[in-house]
């Protein structure tokens, strides 16, 4: 095609044409709202966050402590057996620095996100959260961190009741 035709017939399209409505589109903003039932496991977890504590569930068969808690062990496929409090300290398993916000806007100060293996939970089990009060260049795998909680009166039973995790 391109060898035979030096110029393509037709009208070139510019972003101005699209903005001025010469190119027709149909816009729709979905109204999709949900209120997910937290249920037994999420429910107790959120309640304990409000109390400034992190709770998990233990499976007696595989001896793992699951955080966030689940009412069933996905490996043994049986109900979990007991509630276990874990510490609000842990070790960074992996981390990333996000230079885009949730709406894909570029930001100057990156958001440090980490998976933290919690002390008292089974190896490789913990919490996904933000880091704070730390120089991004210093963050490393294996770094010891602790939870920084919101003041008790401001906690509402949410994952954000922990403000962030900071180096110990």
């Amino acid at each position: 095609m391109s060898e035979k035709f030096k110029e393509f017939p037709g009208t070139p399209l510019s972003s101005r044409d699209i903005k001025s409505g010469k190119v027709l589109t149909f816009k729709w903003r979905p109204n999709a709202k949900y209120a997910w039932t937290v249920g037994i496991a999420y429910g107790r977890f959120l309640e304990e966050l409000k109390n400034g504590r992190i709770i998990g569930r233990k499976c007696r068969e595989c001896s793992r402590v699951l955080v966030p808690p689940r009412m069933f062990c996905e490996q043994c496929f049986r109900p979990t057996d007991e509630w276990v409090f874990v510490k609000n300290t842990g070790r960074i398993n992996t981390f990333s620095l996000s230079y885009l916000d949730a709406d894909a806007r570029r930001i100057k100060t990156p958001i440090p996100v980490a998976v933290i293996d919690l002390d008292g939970a089974s190896p490789g089990i913990g919490i996904l959260h933000k880091l704070g009060n730390v120089d991004p260049k210093r963050i490393h795998i294996g770094m010891r961190v602790r939870a920084v909680w919101k003041p008790a009166k401001q906690r509402e039973g949410s994952i954000t009741d922990i403000k962030y995790w900071e180096p110990i």
Binding site: W36, T37, V38, G39, I40, A41, Y42, R70, M71, P79
Partner: peptide, 12 residues
């Protein structure tokens, strides 16, 4: 309505 259990607990 099932305000007491999550869909995961119900599936289990």
């Amino acid at each position: 309505t099932t305000p007491d259990v999550s869909f995961k607990e119900s599936m289990f």
